[in-house]
């Protein structure tokens, strides 16, 4: 290869503003190009700032020592965390949220994975409509799903309660069911993408080496699906953990989750306590993501994968590509 200095006279088309590597060797006549590039770079910085500054503000102000004015910094303090974590209402809501999110993740992962495996084997004419439905269920506005599940639950509960003299009502189980519903599609999508990218000859090789279908699944297919399954369960957890719209429709007495609690408190105005709750939620979500990332990363390192297959985020974007 020749030295880059001779070939970098013009910025390649489609190069985005974040291409900093060749900045030093740019030549004079490319002034317009570098102007555009500088502008794009500034733009990128602005976008990230726009995305993350509010979050940083929330976290920073959760350490605010103020007693009254939430937007006025009066010194560092952990007192809001202390008060929030000692608040039995918050504790209850946090526990509820963890229960809901964990159950949702488990249910959505198991059923989503099974559905993906089932569809993989199905003939094309059968598979195609279900794949379309899966996509649609992700696109459908949350409020529609919320309303639909509410109507479904209340009408079926009415019928069942009057017919069988039961006492079914909205609560944990309805929140979990509704959350699982929309997260199954998500897991399915991730696992399907991974499945269709998998080398069929590995399965044949296992059969060839006396592996029964059952053993082949657990020894060959499952380990290769694991990153997608982990990514799916993590996403389910986080989506369920911070869901507000659906939860507010199908929750009942005693099943207030953290997002519902936060929303109810800000009606009385944002306090540093609210910020502290938000920061705690953020911490939980990020920890979960980090744990998952480590798991996926270790798996990838063992089987020599790079790029998209080696990160949770990559796994998620991979299926949309």
């Amino acid at each position: 290869m020749s030295a880059p200095a001779t070939s970098v006279a013009r910025a390649p088309e489609g190069a985005s503003g974040v291409d900093v590597a060749h900045g030093g060797v740019r030549q004079k006549k490319d002034r317009v190009g570098s102007l555009v590039e500088g502008w794009l770079r500034g733009h990128a910085v602005l976008i990230y700032a726009f995305l993350y500054i509010p979050i940083v503000v929330v976290v920073v102000f959760s350490f605010n020592a103020t007693d009254r004015r939430v937007t006025q910094w009066e010194g560092f303090s952990l007192k809001w965390y202390e008060s929030v974590l000692n608040d039995t209402v918050v504790q209850g809501a946090l526990a509820n949220s963890l229960i809901v999110a964990t159950s949702t993740a488990v249910i959505a992962t198991i059923f989503g994975t099974m559905a993906a495996l089932g569809l993989q084997r199905a003939p094309r004419w059968f598979r195609a409509p279900f794949e379309a439905l899966t996509f649609i269920s992700i696109i459908v506005p949350e409020i529609v799903i919320a309303l639909a599940t509410l109507v479904f639950f209340s009408s079926t509960f009415d019928i069942l309660n009057s017919l069988l003299d039961l006492k079914l009502r909205l609560g944990f189980q309805t929140i979990i069911a509704a959350h699982a519903l929309f997260n199954i599609s998500l897991v399915m999508l991730l696992v399907r993408a991974r499945l269709s990218g998998m080398d069929r000859t590995h399965v044949e090789a296992s059969y060839d080496l006396y592996g029964t279908p059952w053993r082949t699944f657990w020894q060959i297919t499952f380990p290769q699906l694991l990153p997608a399954i982990i990514a799916g369960s993590l996403l389910s957890f986080t989506f369920s953990f911070d869901d507000y719209v659906i939860t507010t429709f199908v929750s009942g007495a005693g099943s207030t989750t953290l997002p519902l609690y936060v929303f109810s408190t800000i009606r009385k105005g944002v306090t540093p306590a609210t910020n502290a709750v938000a920061a705690v939620m953020l911490l939980i979500t990020l920890s979960i993501l980090l744990i998952g990332q480590i798991a996926v990363w270790r798996n990838a390192r063992r089987s020599g994968q790079h790029g998209a297959q080696a990160s949770v985020a990559g796994m998620i974007t991979e299926q949309s590509g």
Binding site: T201, H202, E204, A205, S206, Q224, G304, Q305
Partner: peptide
Amino acid sequence: VFQHYALFPH
């Protein structure tokens, strides 16, 4: 022995 070996990557 498969064409592309089909060794198990994990």
